[in-house]
Amino acid sequence: MSDRDPVGRRSFLGFLGLAGLSLAGGSRRGVSDLLPFLKGPDDPEVPNEIVQKIMGERFGSREIKRGHVTLDMPPLAEDGRVVPVAIESDLPMTPDSYVKAVYLIVDHNPDPLVTVFHLTPAFERVKIETRIKMKRTCWIRAIVETSNDELWADYMKVETTLNGCG
C-alpha cells in the first residue's frame, strides 16, 4: 500500500473528471454520479445524528477545510470485515506545529468514529495504515487536527457488499 501513489491516481482521476466535464458540458455532480468513487464537488452531507454528535463533540463549530490530508482506500471493498485504510498528510511534525490527532469516521457504521490517533512530533510524518470494518457502502471521513486547532479533511466513498460489523 505504501508503494502506491494516491496523489498520482487522484490527479489522474481528476483529469478524467475534467475531461468528462468538457466533453459532456454537464455539471460536476453528473460526472461524480457516473464515477461514484470520485469525490463529489462538495463535502459529503452529515448523514445522521450520531455523526453530527461526534463532529460537534470533537470539532465544535471549527471549520473543516479540504486539503493537506489524503485518504486512500479501495473504491470497492469486497469484504467489509477487512478494509485497508491509509491516511497521509503533508503537514509538518515539528514541536512548534504538528498534527495532534487523526480522526477516521465511517458514516454508516454502528460506531462511526472508528478510531482516533493522538500523535506527537515523535512521528516523522503522518502516514498511518490500518484495517477497518464497514457495515455498508458509505462516505469515509479522514480529519486531521493540528496543534493550532486547525482541521483538514479528505473524503472518500467506499462501496462494500459484505457487512463487516454484524
Binding site: S2, M93, H118, L119, F123, E129
Partner: peptide, 26 residues
Amino acid sequence: YGDTEIARFEWTSGISKDPVVTFMLR
C-alpha cells in the same frame, strides 16, 4: 518511546480482527 508516551490510539470494534497499524517514527 523510552519512557515518553508518543502516541495514544482510541480504537473501537470497527478496527479489524487482529489489528494492524503502521506509522513513521523519527
